[in-house]
Design a protein around this nucleic acid. Sequence first.
DNA 1: AGTTCCGTTCACGTTAACGTCAAGCTATGA
DNA 2: TCATAGCTTGACGTTAACGTGAACGGAACT
Lengths: 142, 142
Amino acid sequence: MATEFNHAGIETPDEHNRETYTISDLSDEFGVTPRALRFYEDEGLIQPERHGMTRVYHKRDRARLAWILRGKRVGFSLADIREMIDLYDLGDGRTKQRAVTREKCEERIAALSEQRTDIDSAIEELKGFLEVLDKVEAEDKA
Amino acid sequence: MATEFNHAGIETPDEHNRETYTISDLSDEFGVTPRALRFYEDEGLIQPERHGMTRVYHKRDRARLAWILRGKRVGFSLADIREMIDLYDLGDGRTKQRAVTREKCEERIAALSEQRTDIDSAIEELKGFLEVLDKVEAEDKA
DNA sequence: AGTTCCGTTCACGTTAACGTCAAGCTATGA
DNA sequence: TCATAGCTTGACGTTAACGTGAACGGAACT
């Protein structure tokens, strides 16, 4: 009889190609701590299933986590991210709700575009600095 | 007789075209609080002159502030920024020091490039979501 | 002389995003 | 059967980047 649950070790092959993940599966894969995942759950960003006490993550949760982490990388707060996720989940809102959603999205896009140009100029500036270094180096050799 | 110091109000014209700034000149211009500027000073990011007790900022300080704020916008911590400023100030370091500097710069550039692609895909994703909204809207009208 | 502004220095408070124990349950391998 | 590994829930600690008074000084209108 197959054990109903098998946390670590070798994959149970009869579980048709990994549909679920443990907390450390995901935290290992994404390079974050389990604590972080529990925190995101407390904040309402993910809602994994439970088998008894233990969390069981599905692909949907995995995808959300990816979203969250990318959001963080581009400078969003968890509150921002939750807001966006909520908007995303709201596919059936009434017209007015959708207008709000649209506005939020556009705001985000504008902010991100601004960030992009900031990053571009920071990169340029750093490259310029590298060139200065090269020059000094060359002068030194002469 | 010209008053030696004139905080607010109309510009004193005999002070050949604004070479110095008060703390609130700068904080107003850049949209931050004086507290922030003092904090940056405590952290060793800027070192304005003093006339008695009061801080007097020059163009150099203004430029630094601009650097700091852009750094923040692209996600650097104040510690990161101080590190970069220190590197910048070190124009005369010996060869090995310069190698370290170069490496740091390249690391930064790499990180920033990664951030850029993250931002790009976030923007794409948001645009995709907007299209979904458009679709739903269109269906509603039908 | 008095009030108003703008500046100053402590020094404690705050928020976000976890880190870090502590204490306990539970299934699996030795 | 017991230890070990991995899961759980509190709950307090931590860091960064300021916010927020408190209490004061000095110039400048009125």
